[in-house]
């Protein structure tokens, strides 16, 4: 990606995505954390469009920014106000050290490795090809995913049912 627009879009989206994720880690109120989390999800959707994955960008907005965040808001609203505090446990510094080590390792691998020639072409439409692949080559995992969703739905209903 060398176009001025693409490069500018990448930096803006990267800032939104990572900045919102940092806000999620810093704010203490869970409702505010969910709002920041939606910002991060939308930033990732923008990055997907930059990466020629427009179908995944739409799915990201529908499932993550829509469904999962609304589900979290429901869970927050159904637990008491006193449980809205998003404080850390006693192990926070150990967790921070572990997370920093993980990020350092991943970034080192990403920058040191020679990834070979990179595809240079611009935006390419992929949604129709994904649709065909899902119903031809990947039809078995597609069907198994529906069984998994059914099992998860039944499990969630059974767990929240009044005894």
């Amino acid at each position: 990606m060398t176009g001025v627009g693409e490069v500018a879009a990448f930096w803006i989206l990267a800032t939104i995505t990572v900045g919102s994720a940092v806000v999620v880690a810093l704010v203490r109120d869970l409702v505010r954390a969910v709002v920041a989390l939606v910002g991060s999800f939308l930033g990732v959707a923008g990055l997907f469009i930059l990466l020629s994955a427009e179908f995944l960008a739409v799915v990201q907005v529908l499932i993550y920014a829509g469904a999962i965040s609304i589900l979290m808001v429901f869970a927050i609203a159904l637990t008491p106000r006193s449980a809205r505090d998003n404080a850390e446990t006693a192990m926070r510094w150990l967790a921070l050290a572990l997370a920093l080590a993980m990020v350092g390792l991943l970034i080192a691998v990403a920058t040191v490795t020679e990834w070979g020639p990179q595809a240079k072409e611009g935006f390419q439409e992929t949604a129709s090809a994904i649709g065909e692949a899902l119903l031809n080559r990947y039809v078995l995992p597609f069907e198994v995913a529906s069984v998994l969703l059914l099992a998860a739905m039944l499990g969630a209903v059974v767990m929240v049912r009044e005894d």
Partner: peptide, 9 residues
């Protein structure tokens, strides 16, 4: 990773 290891809620 930091969130899931350190948060209490």
């Amino acid at each position: 990773l930091l969130l899931s290891l350190s948060k209490r809620n």
